[in-house]
């Protein structure tokens, strides 16, 4: 693996060298750290102390116009050729890995052209998590704070400089554009920092046998108990890097309109409500249970992976302390 170093103060120059790309990065918006398209390179704020929300929107935007139409009914397809080559800088390894879990959903029997257009043109430049957050449990679910899965380049914070690991051809191409800023790294490996980071992860769960366990618990009263404190907002699903459910709506102004797809949440009653008024998941219990089953059973049935990367955001952001790790542990103990 090729490895370089980049002095930290050269980061703006590094990003300027990539001006052919549209760049997404964590930016400070008020007190919050959010992933957003950069208008000004100065806005990048890696903010290693806060877990940024939400990186999936760089490839799976919250609103995606599918096509537009006019009063005569003429349909104009969104020009996907206009999607620019994009770099998502400062993405965490768990979030990068989430795209590898979204890929089979959006490819599948019928590939989704919108997802594919962005995904194929987006390079993921990750920042290793030297200091995982309190609810991080990536190591319990196949990831790690220094995970390379899904990434093209991995930045490792080594004090005054970043170590850059080139993971893919795209990563190589990108480092090529900024080669004057990079020095070949000495043999010193990042393994020690990686191990230290992994050791800092305090939350763990053994998921062995979980899908089989879930298969036997669908009708168990434990779901009602779990869901009883849920207030039914969508914070867990919207902040989740692997949640992908969407709604499709026609939005029309006087002269024209567009059909747009928008993130949806399985936690909202409207999500499954039939026009007849019948709702197959009418209560919070059924919706909550479906969310857990989708992630830890149905996704396993369909794609042989959990739909979770262990980022812990649903736990950290839940207003009522619905703690996925805690609940899954209890599921495992439930008879």
């Amino acid at each position: 693996m090729t490895t370089y170093t980049l002095p930290k103060d050269k980061l703006p120059e590094f990003l300027s060298a990539l001006s052919d790309y549209e760049i997404w990065a964590p930016v400070k918006k008020g007190p919050a750290t959010l992933f957003d398209r950069l208008d000004d390179l100065k806005d990048v704020d890696l903010d290693l102390e806060n877990q940024p929300v939400i990186s999936k929107k760089a490839i799976f935007p919250q609103n995606e116009p599918l096509f537009s139409y006019d009063r005569k009914g003429t349909v104009t397809e969104t020009d996907l050729n206009a999607v620019k080559n994009t770099i998502v800088f400062g993405i965490r390894p768990c979030d990068a890995r989430s795209f590898t879990l979204l890929d089979p959903v959006f490819e599948g029997d019928v590939p989704d052209p919108y997802y594919r257009a962005r995904r194929s043109k987006t390079a993921l430049l990750g920042i290793a998590c030297n200091d995982p957050f309190v609810n991080c449990f990536c190591t319990s679910i196949g990831g790690s704070p220094f995970g390379r899965e899904g990434l093209d380049l991995l930045f490792i914070d080594c004090g005054d400089l970043f170590t850059l690991e080139v993971i893919t051809e795209t990563g190589k191409e990108i480092t090529g554009k900024a080669s004057s800023l990079l020095s070949p790294a000495t043999a010193e490996s990042s393994e020690q920092i990686a191990q230290a980071a992994t050791d800092k992860i305090k939350r763990h769960i053994d998921l062995t046998g979980l899908p089989e366990k879930l298969a036997s618990l669908f009708e168990h009263p434990v779901w009602k108990e779990f869901a009883s404190k849920c207030i039914g907002c969508g914070i867990c699903t919207y902040s989740c890097p692997t949640c992908y459910c969407f709604d499709m709506q026609d939005e029309t102004t006087l002269k024209q309109g567009r059909r747009v797809r928008i993130w949806d949440s399985c936690m909202f009653p409207e999500y499954t409500l039939h026009a007849s008024g019948h709702n197959p998941r009418a209560t919070r219990t059924e919706r909550f249970r479906n969310r857990i089953y989708h992630k830890f059973k149905f996704n396993m049935d369909n794609f042989h992976s959990y739909s979770c990367v262990g980022c812990g955001r649903c736990i950290s952001l839940c207003p009522v302390n619905i703690d996925l790790i805690d609940y899954l542990s209890r599921v495992k103990e439930t008879e």
């Binding site: 019928v110 989704d112 459910c245 499709m248 039939h274 996704n299």
Partner: peptide, 24 residues
């Protein structure tokens, strides 16, 4: 069977019964 559907191609999520999507 039927359920509320949007995409028709097993991606938008809502029409599932267990791990199967009614639309697909």
């Amino acid at each position: 069977m039927e359920n509320r559907m949007k995409c028709g191609i097993g991606k938008c999520g809502r029409c599932n019964v267990g791990h199967l999507y009614i639309c697909k």
